[in-house]
Design a binder for these strands. Structure first.
Lengths: 343, 343
DNA sequence: GCTGTGTTTTGCAGCGCTGCAAAAGCGTAG
DNA sequence: CTACGCTTTTGCAGCGCTGCAAAACACAGC
């Protein structure tokens, strides 16, 4: 493989210094038209391409941001990622993706002090559960934006919807339908399940606001927010007898899993059991029945996260950690109100 | 921000040369136990972390591979990516992800000569359509593995299932059910739709092998392989009158979209119309009805692609471009044979 | 003690680029 | 003609690491 063309090669051909070539390549303003043209021609003649690695080393930055999610194949994340990549690219950043598989050790490693130093300039992090230890030995110099959990300690930004309000809204929708035995699937009552706990809180508030009591045994925990766990939890509920007449699921995947079980048992959705999900993934818009859900504004979340992160990367004095509330709305579909009259 | 700890700092503290520290850090064999320990201690005391950028520049490699897919939110790709990331990480490689949004210009840019030179050591590329021009001015020195399309010109590897055989198998399954008016949704009869064309070919072969004629008007094209396009295509078919009694969809998403339309029209799946998909994504295992499909071995595809790519990256004389056939199988679910008797 | 062999450590150059500050060029005013 | 201020170009050092080859060391055998 022949040696690659360098700045110096171009400089020699154009009869200028390599620094001038650098200036032209980077669009520096103070270059005469004549020089610019001469350099431009030389660049093209030799087919010069800047060496990103060298540039990065010299600048002390990598031009990459990392996005860390627990699972890539969760539609919510992949839909979000799509927007993040787009937003980052507009600003000239590449996106390095990593999935933690929900492994706490792995999550910690990503924001720990000095880890993979300089491979990325900042991290957008969607932790499955961000424990105290991880926060404690995190690199304070690493620009960080957290998605989902509510945990800003002032040194990073947090972007997410108001989980409590949204969950309350979802539950109220079920109660408005006249359902009385409403179950919740997805609780995670341990230290790292904060997102789940906020949803449970909203679920409770909806009840107490109406003076309704909560059947604690109708709050079901799951390890993950995916289809198999939703299906399993629903099966548990149905096996017990005295089944619920409505279910609030903490993700659309859980809802799809639950619906799968309900239908497999010969019951109807929503006639026998109404189901509402969370996330508004595309699946739920095409499933049978279609799934009512809480729809977070993913585009808003993605662009805001990138924007804030780049701001952090760019500023020497880190801006204060903000709590950024993304808009959300309730979307009513067949799984709670049934199919509209057929055409 | 204080200056970061460098090799030289460690060297000074340990009283050795920086080259020796480098040797220890990189696990070079010929270092006495005494030296190694001393250096190790200094490394820990100072909290030294290698600067990846500098290492990359010195070595002339980036330790990253790029994976380029058209759309990240397509479950098939996100499921595949998950495995690719895992496989790459095992070999110490990071994965840089990019989505092209199906933009040909963007796709070309990724493999074009010199583009983003050295940002990644190789590319796993799932082109939406790899046109001649892109192949023509591709950088011959860039290690490349292509997924999906069948297009190896000998200078790169290609990993994918046998599309023709698989499609034929799917179609035969529908014919075996006694269906006679079988439609196909997803054809792309233009230059860059090779994957789709192979599936159409399999569809045809299944018919001709049994001496059946094909109703050309039952082969429907779509721009993408997603739910909305599947739903739309199915609506077209039904609007025409004389609807098909079975449909072979070129992806599970298309199938889910098609099923959505069929059910919305008050028809039944599979009683009125049997539907089979392609890709075996998780959706299809939990949808109502569950979706029969062609299941490619994604794990095999991912690990093989990474393995071959790293082999290319590592060898100075590029190995011959291989055509690697991944295993696949037909999976029969409710959308073709109906629900098993209820429990 | 000296030589030869093998192991361990070192010095240096350089990967290709950019930051910095100085040098050169250029036009205008005095 | 000189001085001054502004624009344009340049030279150099250095980002932090590794490749290479030479130097230093250790040990055995004569």
């Amino acid at each position: 493989m022949r040696r690659e063309v360098t700045l110096r090669d171009v400089a020699e051909l154009a009869g200028v210094s390599s620094r001038t070539v650098s200036n032209v390549v980077n669009g520096y303003a103070n270059v005469t038209e004549r020089t610019r043209e001469r350099v431009q021609r030389a660049v093209e003649e030799l087919g010069y391409r800047p060496n990103v690695l060298a540039r990065n080393l010299a600048q002390g930055r990598s031009g990459q941001i990392a996005v860390v999610v627990p699972y890539l194949d969760t539609p919510y994340f992949s839909e979000l990622l799509q927007s993040v990549i787009r937003a980052a690219r507009i600003s000239g950043y590449n996106v390095l993706i990593d999935q933690t598989d929900g492994d706490a050790e792995h999550e910690r490693g990503f924001i720990a002090h000095g880890s993979r130093r300089l491979l990325f300039d900042g991290v957008i992090f969607s932790p499955l559960g961000l424990d105290q230890r991880a926060l404690a030995d995190r690199d304070p110099a690493l620009p960080l934006v957290i998605l989902g959990e509510r945990a800003s300690d002032g040194s990073f930004d947090h972007v997410g919807i108001d989980d409590v309000a949204a969950s309350r809204q979802a539950t109220e929708h079920l109660l408005d339908l006249g359902r009385h035995r409403v179950a919740a699937i997805g609780d995670q009552p341990y230290a790292t399940g904060e997102a789940a706990q906020l949803r449970t809180q909203g679920f409770r508030e909806a009840h107490t606001a109406r003076g309704l009591s909560i059947r604690e045994d109708l709050i079901i925990g799951t390890a993950r927010f995916n289809r198999p766990d939703g299906a399993r939890a629903m099966a548990d509920l149905l096996d017990r007898g005295d089944p619920p007449d409505a279910v609030f699921c903490y993700s659309d995947l859980v809802a799809l899993g639950a619906i799968h079980t309900i239908l497999a048992r010969g019951l109807r959705v929503p006639e026998d059991i109404a189901v509402i999900g969370y996330d508004d993934i595309e699946d739920g818009r095409y499933s049978n029945p279609t799934v009512s859900t809480i729809s977070p504004d993913k585009e808003w979340i993605a662009t805001t996260a990138v924007e804030r992160l780049l701001l952090r990367i760019g500023s020497s004095t880190p801006p204060p950690g903000l709590e950024l509330r993304a808009p959300h709305k309730l979307i009513v579909r067949e799984s709670t109100t049934g199919r509209a009259s057929r055409p």
